[in-house]
Simulated assay, not measured.
Amino acid sequence: MENFDAIIIGGGSAGLAASIALGRSRRSTLVIDANEPRNARAAHAHNVLGQEGISPLQLLDQGRNEAVHYGAQIITDHAVRIEGSSLNGFTVHTETAAYKASRIVLATGLTDQLEEIPGLREAWGISAIHCTYCHGWEVRDQSVAVLGLGPMSSHQALLFAQLSDRVTFVNHHPEHLSAENREILNKSGVVIVEGRVQQLRVDEHGQLDGIVLANGDLLESQAAVVSSRMIANSELYLQLGGTLKDHPMGTFIPVNEMGATDVPGLYATGNAANLGAMVMAAAASGTVAGAALNGDLALERLDSHSSATTA
């Protein structure tokens, strides 16, 4: 069974950044990646300094090349089980093999739980969007419908109103729209439509062709803004006895400022630990976790050397 200093589970921007930090410190590193990036359907990645508008898949391809350059091994597989501890080492079981490591980084991302509205999944990531900073500029001055699906929906409408004066709020779940937020939307020029969404009309390319309301009316819109419930992919963390934390937008793996979880020797980074992290923030957290892990191993080696010398 191959043994590594660190195994990183997840090869997105956070996991690859961690592997580069470790590789540059000459740590033997394995990245296990299921090749299921959350932003695969998006045409562009934004707020990526020096790479604005790059294809998310191209960005990951460049990151993989950089990681391999510094010695990381990358395999495409699903990690299904993890056991062990920082004292005796961890064993990660995939669908095809098993690997050992002194430390683990979970860069497993999150899963978006979407409202069951016909057409939403087909449009998701293309014309059904969620983040003004990731997609807002691309729909500026367009007709934008914000679907009132959760407690953050009115905040989404407020932000998109900065980019277009044709923003409509569809009050799908009226229990989430407080009187205070209703007043804020009114002051922002956002039109509030009472009623539920029956369907998103979407073409074969995922482009929105209007929103059908429960009363049969058709709301013309070029983009639908939705909020998902974001759930950290945490099965492996839970297997080691970790405890998740709740957030208004979902659940996440709690970590300290260096990415360490409450399980010794286990780090978490990217969207698994920060539901709102965009590409650069996820990558930055990966670099920090990789650096912290390297320092942890350096101190452990020093302690072992001191103990051996004393004996």
Rank of each mutant, 00 (worst) to 15 (best):
L266N: 01
A79F: 11
S86T: 12
G53E: 03
I7K: 07
G216K: 08
V31S: 13
A45E: 10
R27A: 06
D77M: 11
L57Y: 04
I192W: 03
N274Q: 09
D141L: 07
N181K: 09
S86I: 13
S307L: 15
Q62Y: 10
H69E: 13
P151K: 05
L59F: 02
L299K: 14
S153V: 03
G12H: 13
G84F: 12
A273D: 07
V226A: 08
M1R: 05
G119P: 14
I184T: 03
T269K: 00
N39M: 04
D296I: 08
I211P: 00
S188C: 03
E194H: 06
R81P: 01
V191L: 06
R27K: 15
E2A: 08
D303W: 11
P248I: 05
D141F: 09
L240S: 03
I75A: 09
T29I: 10
M249S: 02
A18L: 07
G148E: 12
H69G: 07
S127K: 01
P118R: 08
T111A: 13
L49A: 14
S19Q: 03
G265P: 02
A128G: 11
T261H: 08
Q142L: 12
N294W: 06
Q142P: 01
L238P: 11
A179D: 09
S13K: 01
